[in-house]
Design a protein around this nucleic acid. Structure first.
Lengths: 135, 135
DNA sequence: TCTTGAGCCTGTAGTTGCTACAGACCTTAT
DNA sequence: ATAAGGTCTGTAGCAACTACAGGCTCAAGA
């Protein structure tokens, strides 16, 4: 099969560590463009898509939601993005991450202090059950 | 409508703060039992279901997954639960919570240190974009 | 040449934990 | 008589994927 300077989906997946099906999903939701097709209908990606997909995957690792990633990409797609804009979006995401951390920390404190009150023995009375049953 | 010592779904929702539809959902997935019905087909809950639903809601607030709640309930439903069993399940959940916290903290550190490197000005160069674009 | 196996295509279903309808019934009050 | 509100059922939608099933196509080996 002749591929003038393009790669197939599995190669894109391998080069980025992305799941094969996820690539198709990102295409469906518009994070990746509809790629050109070869004569037999196979997707043929230009090599710079490796970079774009890696951008998406890195953003995902940092917990950005799809909608946030979409909006970051729409900035860079114009080529006229500014650090100020990117910072603003990132700051909002960071606020969200911090909220999640403190929610989880509150849960962590409740669980660990309650666990510390448990006898851990083969008895029906249990501090955790008391907390869950409290009205 | 005659309800011998039972309450309707909306009342159960009001008394627990639970969403109306969520009650039906918990019934469908087996956390709440199929309640008896009045002549017209309305659900009529015995009053102790308030307690059970509150147990579920408290567990959800503490981040327990449905499957974990199901397993806690199946312990208490026998009436022969032990503190040791409940502790073991709770400890597993706590481990999970702590994993999530440290994942989020890693993200938080990356985001905040990268943000600190940003100029925040109206220029295209941006530390965040560099991180997202790195290969 | 035939066949086998791998790779690609599409569409769709499943995941978790809900939430929100649509359309039909029933009850209560005016 | 009718209007407003409650209840019922089933189903669709959310995020963010992941994993099939069923059908082509392609390259390599016997």
């Amino acid at each position: 099969m002749e591929l003038k300077s393009g790669i197939l989906r599995a190669q894109l997946a391998r080069q980025t560590g992305c799941n094969l099906e996820t690539i198709r999903y990102y295409e469906k939701v518009g994070l990746l463009p509809d790629p050109p097709r070869s004569a037999n209908g196979y997707r043929v990606y230009p090599p710079d898509l490796v970079q774009r997909l890696q951008f998406i995957l890195h953003a995902r690792e940092l917990g950005f939601a799809m909608e946030e990633i979409r909006s970051l990409l729409s900035l860079t797609d114009t080529g006229a993005q500014t650090c100020a804009e990117v910072m603003a979006k990132t700051q909002l995401h960071l606020d969200d991450v911090r909220r999640k951390i403190s929610d989880l920390q509150r849960i962590e404190r409740t669980l660990s202090t309650t666990l510390a009150e448990c006898s851990g023995e083969n008895v029906p009375e249990c501090a955790i059950l008391s907390v869950l049953n409290c009205s």
